[in-house]
Simulated assay, not measured.
Amino acid sequence: MKGLTIDQIIHYQTEGYLIAEDVLTDEDLQPVIDELEQEIDKRARALHAEGKIAELHEHESFERRFALLHAQCPEIGKGFDISDYLGDAVFRFLGNDHLLDVVECLLGSELSCNPIQHLRAKLPWKPGANAEPDYFQNVPWHQDCAVTSVDSDASEIITFWLPLVNATAETGCMEVMPEVSKLGYLKHRKEGGTTIVPEQLPHVQPVLAECRKGSIVIMNKYTPHRGTTNTSDIVRWSLDLRYHKLGAQSGRSIHPSFAVRSAKQPELVLTQADKWRTLWQEAKLRRAEGKLHRV
């Protein structure tokens, strides 16, 4: 198990975030990228058949093709999150050993995959070329605990954000506020999205969390962070994953958590993608009562 060094763990505990470099290999990430390319191609061909896309851009790279297709028909991005398309490769990656070795250093050997997880395609944006980036392109300052239910306040839920291309200032990496996690939960409100209320926003110099492909930005659930604009000519693809201790409240109990690693009860680990898909499909059929999360 490679995992994290003591110095890295101390940095995470002190600052509320850590950029762990070169955790994942191309072999870890390529199956996910291949699956995304196949999904994009399938959607593009369906929209082409409907006359909504004129040019398929079949020979463009993973980093560029989606933006060219999206410019012709934004519908191609509809329902393109992890819990929507539920791909085999993404499911296998949720239990990737290199990733879980890092998670285990912070949460122990009994691990559950949290259902709050996202795939994001941050599109290129040029001043004057299109509208201002919306909430889902540039999420404002927030803490990840804000989108959990209050019954999970005692749960240690850690975010593992990883890019599928280099996340730089140009491609739209995140900014984080160091040490603010020590303040606990800050009040949020809905304003296009979930964001910290202005009067509670700390006056802290943010850190630009540039992160190479294969590296991970790890964040405490109380660490304020936000997105920045992608001014490059490529799509900044990323996965936003969270893990918590097996048996703890997930903060989204209406959606399925599942065991990804257990030294004590390895038989609990979910290894079948079909079963994972069924859990999500059943969850979506159930009507949620009350608020999805505290905000």
Rank of each mutant, 00 (worst) to 15 (best):
T223Y: 03
I9C: 09
I116E: 12
R226L: 03
S109F: 01
Y185H: 14
Y85P: 00
I40Q: 10
V295Q: 05
E58R: 07
A89W: 00
P163H: 10
L201H: 03
E37H: 04
Q38G: 13
T148V: 00
V32C: 10
G290D: 13
L119M: 11
E15M: 06
G192M: 02
A209E: 05
A54I: 01
V147E: 10
F80K: 04
D7L: 05
A131E: 15
R261G: 07
K122S: 09
H118C: 03
K187F: 01
P115F: 12
A20C: 09
Y243G: 11
I19P: 08
N130S: 14
L29W: 05
I82P: 10
V176F: 02
C173Y: 10
I158T: 15
F62V: 12
E21R: 15
Q205E: 14
P127K: 14
S262Y: 09
Q281D: 06
L162A: 06
Q281F: 00
V176P: 07
M177N: 05
E170G: 03
Q8M: 09
T231F: 01
S253K: 04
R294F: 03
M219P: 10
E289N: 07
L268T: 02
L119I: 04
I19V: 15
R43E: 01
K42I: 00
T14R: 12
F160D: 10
H142K: 12
K245W: 00
T231K: 13
D233F: 00
S215C: 08
K42G: 07
V180S: 06
A283Q: 00
K245H: 11
N130L: 01
P74F: 05
K213G: 01
H118R: 15
L94S: 02
I9Q: 14
L279M: 15
Q13H: 13
E15G: 01
I33T: 13
A46D: 07
G251R: 04
W276V: 01
F136A: 04
E179L: 03
G247N: 07
V197H: 04
A44V: 02
S181L: 00
I157K: 11
H70M: 03
L246F: 11
V147K: 04
A20P: 07
D88S: 03
D240T: 04
K52T: 02
Y12F: 15
G79F: 02
N230G: 08
